[in-house]
Simulated assay, not measured.
Amino acid sequence: MFKKGISVLLLCVAFSVNAVPTDDIASILEQQEAAWNRGDLDAYMQGYWNNEQMRFVSNGKFRYGWEETLAAYKKHYPDKATLGHLTFTIKETKMLSNYAAIVVGRWSLERVKDNPNGVFTLLVEKIDDRWVITHDHTSD
């Protein structure tokens, strides 16, 4: 009986460690933040789903597709001065299922001329065994 109890306990511990992937999801934003701050937009985009159905909503516009989003980032942030220093602050991660989560937070840029900031809501999904942002709604 004692061995069975330990086995059940170990099984519960193993599942509880992997049951809530919020650390994996937070890691996406940490990696994006680091990539942005070193001026590497290609690496920044690795957090997004590389698919034409990936959606980015900002400034009243809908943008679809990984390539189009990367091109827009490169157009609007052509150099280190415009990129500035990015900080993400996650306010909440709500698991919708084992394969989807909503992340709500704040973003801020520190630049020489200004310090824009705003909020974001992300749909993060597990696709091909990897967590990626499939929908990003960012506003000032």
Rank of each mutant, 00 (worst) to 15 (best):
K75S: 08
A81Q: 15
H137S: 06
V13A: 12
Y64M: 10
N59T: 10
R55C: 06
R106G: 11
I25S: 09
G118M: 03
R111T: 02
W131R: 03
A19R: 06
E67F: 01
W36S: 01
T121W: 00
L10V: 08
E52Q: 11
D40T: 00
V17S: 07
R130I: 03
I102L: 13
Q32I: 01
T93S: 11
L123D: 06
K113V: 02
G60S: 08
D40K: 05
R106M: 02
L109H: 03
T134F: 01
T93K: 04
E110T: 13
A34N: 06
N51R: 02
N117S: 15
E30C: 04
M54Y: 09
I28V: 14
D140H: 13
L122I: 09
F56V: 07
I127S: 07
F2C: 10
K94L: 05
Q46A: 11
A34S: 14
A43S: 11
D23I: 13
F120I: 08
W66T: 06
D140F: 04
A35S: 10
V13R: 10
L123Y: 02
V57F: 07
D79Y: 08
G60N: 04
K75V: 07
I127N: 06
L123W: 03
G60A: 10
V103K: 08
Y48T: 00
E125W: 00
G60W: 05
G65Y: 05
E68Q: 13
V103I: 12
K113I: 06
T22R: 03
A81M: 12
V119S: 13
S7G: 15
A72F: 08
E125K: 07
L122M: 08
G105D: 07
P116M: 03
V119C: 05
A81V: 02
S97N: 04
V8M: 09
H137Q: 10
H135P: 00
L9Y: 06
R130D: 09
A43Y: 01
L83R: 13
E68V: 08
E67K: 14
G65Q: 08
L86E: 04
V104F: 07
L41M: 04
I90H: 02
R130K: 14
V132A: 12
K4A: 15
G105P: 02
D129G: 06
D40L: 00
V119L: 12
G47F: 10
V20N: 15
H135Y: 11
V124W: 06
E30Q: 12
N18L: 13
G118K: 03
K74P: 06
I133T: 04
E110K: 11
T121Y: 01
A101R: 08
V20M: 03
V20G: 01
G5M: 14
D114E: 14
A14R: 01
K4S: 15
S27Y: 07
E125A: 11
W36Y: 00
K74G: 06
D128L: 10
V103H: 01
A101M: 05
A35C: 05
A100W: 00
Q32R: 03
L41Y: 00
E67M: 09
P116R: 00
L83S: 08
R106N: 15
H76E: 12
S97V: 07
E68H: 12
L96P: 03
T121C: 09
D129A: 09
N98L: 09
